[in-house]
């Protein structure tokens, strides 16, 4: 962000350089403003702070105890035992990490590629543009739980329309969410259906801000569509793509509604769709393993923060 001197900054600097006499309104103004801005900020920041600071401290504290069954009765501090337990657990924890990474990477990469293709497809104005944009809005505003249940009907192994349609092209019926091996890929595809439009909307917004001249110049120089896309548009769109990746990536890592609604506790009988979020939820609310669950959540949060920090650093570098 470049800092240009706006009239506001000039007003802020003025009182110091000018003699106070005759400029009374502006001086008291800036002083009053200091109080005003905090008065306006306090409710919002105070609320978010209250809802997050104590809870995070509480969770971090719990992660160091052997809390089980109750959060406040007779818990002993066990140091980093919960973290050690989680990090050495190859039955539930590491597979959940793997699924979280697989789900997020698979879904977000597909959503970015398809979203970019779709944004390019819709970039130039055409008749019916408004209708297409309206249709794009529906999945990304729809309730994830309702979407999950809808896809359960569509993908029902015996009565679903999906297998019926696959039959027309000679593909045998699939188990989809009913099978251990297909659950995660199926969930990824549902996620792609729901969130590709989101990527498209974000990237389309980025595309409309790009200057047209570089592309025109390349066209005149004889670059074909693909060359113009790879060498002109992609580099200019880098910041928008990275920003969209951060937004979607964070949400994809935390995907809960869709998975829990379609696969239930533990992500299925074989934990086949159990991501970190679903695992932590089960530990907390089904098993009351508050200590261990808190440790998993602390690790999960650190993991997300690390990814955001890395991606944002990239974004800043590409923006400058």
């Amino acid at each position: 962000m470049t800092t240009t001197t706006t009239p506001r900054a000039a007003v802020g600097a003025a009182p110091r350089s000018r003699p106070p006499a005759g400029e009374k309104p502006l001086v008291t103004f800036e002083q009053a403003n200091r109080r005003l801005k905090w008065a306006l900020l306090a409710p919002a920041l105070g609320f978010v702070g209250l809802m997050i600071v104590f809870p995070l401290a509480f969770t971090i504290n719990l992660s160091l105890t052997d809390a089980f069954g109750a959060v406040n009765a007779g818990n002993a501090y066990v140091g980093l035992q919960n973290f050690a337990d989680a990090l050495t657990d190859t039955r539930r924890f590491w597979p959940a990490v793997g699924r979280t990474v697989t789900f997020t990477l698979g879904a977000v990469v597909l959503e970015t590629v398809l979203g970019l293709a779709l944004a390019m497809l819709l970039r130039k104005a055409f008749r019916g543009m408004e209708i297409v944009r309206t249709i794009l809005m529906v999945p990304l505003l729809a309730t994830p739980v309702a979407i999950g249940i809808l896809w359960m009907l569509i993908l029902d192994p015996t009565n679903g329309i999906a297998n019926h349609l696959l039959g027309f092209v000679g593909i045998p019926p699939q188990e989809f969410l009913g099978s251990v091996s297909q659950s995660l890929p199926t969930l990824m595809l549902i996620d792609v259906w729901q969130w590709t439009p989101m990527m498209t909307v974000l990237l389309l917004a980025g595309l409309t801000t790009l200057p047209e001249e570089p592309e025109e110049a390349a066209r005149v120089d004889g670059a074909n569509v693909w060359q113009r896309f790879v060498h002109i548009i992609l580099p200019m769109l880098r910041t928008t793509i990275l920003t969209a990746l951060v937004l979607r990536g964070v949400d994809a890592l935390k995907t809960f509604d869709l998975i829990y609604a379609t696969k239930g506790p533990g992500g299925g009988s074989d934990f086949e769709a159990e991501t970190l979020n679903v695992y932590a939820y089960g530990l907390t609310f089904d098993y009351q393993e508050y200590g261990l669950a808190s440790a998993v959540l602390v690790l999960f949060t650190l993991f997300i923060v690390a990814i955001v920090v890395v991606l944002r650093r990239r974004t800043e570098r590409s923006a400058s």
């Binding site: 809802m51 995070l56 959060v71 809960f256 602390v298 955001v308």
Partner: peptide
């Protein structure tokens, strides 16, 4: 960024 579940307890 914070997962909602870490706040729920």
């Amino acid at each position: 960024i914070v997962p909602a579940i870490s706040l729920l307890v």
